[in-house]
Design a protein around this nucleic acid. Structure first.
Length: 571
RNA sequence: GGGGCACUAGCUCAACGGAUAGAGUAUCGGACUUCGAAUCCGCAGGUUGUGGGUUCGAAUCCCACGUGCCUCACCA
């Protein structure tokens, strides 16, 4: 496909002294108001060098590039050179590109041969999967899809919270008050009850805390009784998580959680010591980070057992040695910013020059209307309940509209669960938000169902057109003069922008960039659909318009896929 | 108290340092005998938390302040 920014930069570059082509490309903008053209070049910055007023420079440049066949029109407005691409050629280029392989549109191979690790979801074993966990899970999955589409070789790691003193507490509670049958019947609920009970009891009996720490120390030393119980808790919990992952359509390549690194840590404690980074303090071992403006990082506790950050150091080195990653991405709540800053600084101090390739991708907090989520206090919304209610609501709507088919159940899942995921991916990930049933169950306006509906509508047009007409349109060779109206052209431009949008989303680790763009495409398609009749009598006109429908449908479908969503043909 | 993040229309949110700050939603008013109304069109809605600064130009960068959230030693 033609890269217009590149071409324009070449043209302008021939008349501008002292600016690299790259700089020119960066200066080229897409005007906010489309009446100002398809591309614009602001000339303010040239004024100093050329010692001329910006509007005069713009006028000069406009005159010089005006004749190029790429443009339908070039004009100077104040300090800007506004360029209008020749619509015919633009449309022909875009349509033929998409139609040649619709499923591949938006994909690239820039990442070929490079390994990227995305660590995401990472729930704590024996705690329920609540609405707060959806963020890491869905954002991480989308980042995986985006990097995959960019051609990277991506490894998805679920760094399960399956280790630590909490398991000492759980085993302790199980031994005091537990029952095997309860755990088997409802693992997570039961284990959570133990955990809660433990905290209640420990208020009055502090010796329990010590007991729990001792149990964890045994677990870490590999005492068979403790290991067996722990393994059992882990297996049962994972079964429950799997049902949620299946609903979301999310898979992992590895479930190597914290426990996986339990035997790999002595090496790093020693390494830290050898490199003179370790300090004793109050019986514990720390890395002092004061000169970097951070509080000290605790490496081992006074009883010798390890902490979160120690395991993360071990995990990072293991991954570098095992995968030789190009990038190592952690999709973890912004509440852990300090932890990741300390961790990256320690890797740097240890002399690992790949520390810069480790990226913490933080996201904001989810709270409820009555405060922060707290499983212990019963302030919690379970993800499974949210997904189920969204599916139920979708079914109601489908029945109401009378478009039910034999696979209504399947479609309701795709739309209902997709609605929840889409909602999650529509805002900048750093924003905090308050969970609201009204919002998550709203299917109108800028929502997942809206985009899916638009896709289904495009599919419907193609069905109505008939196989023969659709196949002819898909074969190309269309007369693009039929799709250069304002609404058709706007749609074409948005579809054209898709690959760049995906790259941008990848660079920023920000799926919402894709979400917003496919909303724009859907809005633009609906406008086109309302403004113009597609299935007209004129065969050439119909063919051209159907080709645009095929392209728009592909862009939406591929975009939804990057969010981890399905694109049903009817709904 | 130290550090970090956020603050934009009634509400939820957009906006590579660029032109008149845009969407959705809510309210109000329109469009289904038509290719799908989970749609589309229109009206209205703003001192971008406050005050300074940087510059041709600031919601965006810098400083101070305000409000809210996160975080700061044996949880993760």
């Amino acid at each position: 496909m033609i890269d217009y920014k590149e071409k324009i930069a070449d043209l302008l570059g021939a008349h501008i002294e002292g600016l690299e082509k790259k700089e020119i490309v960066e200066m080229i903008e897409i005007p906010t108001d489309e009446k100002m053209g398809d591309y614009a070049f602001p000339c303010f910055r040239l004024a100093k060098v050329l010692r001329k007023a910006p509007p005069l420079i713009a006028k000069d440049l406009a005159a010089k590039i005006e004749g190029d066949p790429m443009f339908g029109k070039v004009e100077q407005v104040n300090a800007y050179v506004n360029m209008y691409i020749s619509r015919d050629a633009f449309a022909a280029d875009l349509i033929s590109e998409v139609i040649s392989d619709p499923d591949a549109y938006g994909k690239s191979n820039v990442g070929q041969g490079r390994k990227v690790i995305v660590e995401f979801s990472s729930p704590n074993i024996a705690k329920p999967f609540h609405i707060g966990h959806i963020r890491s899970t869905v954002i991480g999955n989308s980042i995986y899809k985006i990097y995959d589409a960019l051609g990277y070789d991506v490894e998805r790691i679920n760094h399960l919270g399956d280790y630590g003193t909490q398991f000492g507490k759980m085993i302790c509670a199980y031994r005091h008050w537990g029952s095997k049958e309860d755990v088997v019947r409802s693992p997570i609920k039961t284990l959570l009850k133990y955990y809660t009970k433990f905290h209640e009891e420990a208020e009055n009996d502090p010796s329990l805390d010590q007991e729990a720490r001792d149990i964890f120390a045994k677990l870490e030393k590999g005492q068979p009784e403790e290991v067996e119980l722990w393994q059992w808790f882990r297996d049962e919990s994972l079964k429950e998580f799997t049902t949620v992952y299946e609903m979301l359509g999310i898979e992992f390549d590895s479930y190597a959680g914290e426990s996986f690194y339990s035997d790999k840590m002595p090496r790093f404690v020693k390494e830290l010591e050898n490199k003179g980074l370790l300090k004793k303090s109050e019986g514990a071992q720390i890395v002092d980070l004061e000169e970097y403006g951070m509080s000290p990082a605790l490496i081992t506790k006074s009883d010798g057992s390890t902490l979160y950050i120690t395991r993360d150091i071990a995990a990072a080195v293991y991954r570098k040695e095992h995968y030789d990653f190009y990038k190592n991405i952690y999709v973890v709540s912004s509440g852990q910013n300090l932890h990741f800053q300390q961790w990256i600084k320690i890797l740097e101090l240890m002399g690992y020059n790949w520390a810069k390739d480790c990226v913490h991708v933080p996201f904001g907090l989810v709270s409820l209307e009555d405060g922060t989520m707290s499983t212990r206090h019963g302030r919690v919304v379970f993800l499974e309940d949210v997904l189920n209610r969204a599916v139920e609501k979708t079914k109601e709507i489908i029945e109401e509209k009378g478009v039910a088919t034999d696979n209504t159940e399947e479609i309701a899942k795709q739309v209902g669960i997709g609605a929840v995921m889409f909602q999650e991916l529509s805002n900048n990930r750093i924003k905090d938000y308050v969970f609201s049933w009204d919002r998550v169950l709203n299917f109108e306006g800028e929502t997942g169902p809206y985009v899916q509906y638009t896709h289904a509508r495009a599919a419907s047009v193609l069905r109505k057109a008939g196989d023969k007409a659709a196949a002819e349109a898909a074969a190309g060779g269309i007369d693009t003069s039929y799709i250069v109206s304002d609404s058709a052209y706007e749609l074409i431009k948005l579809i054209y922008a898709m690959p760049e949008v995906i790259r941008d989303a990848g660079e920023k680790y920000e799926p919402s960039v894709v979400t917003r763009h496919i909303i724009n495409i859907a809005q633009s398609f609906n406008r086109f659909y309302h403004n113009e009749h597609i299935l007209v009598d004129d065969e050439n006109e119909k063919k051209a318009k159907l080709a645009l429908v095929i392209a728009a449908k592909a862009a939406i479908k591929n975009g939804l896929a990057l969010l981890g969503m399905e694109a049903p043909e009817r709904m």
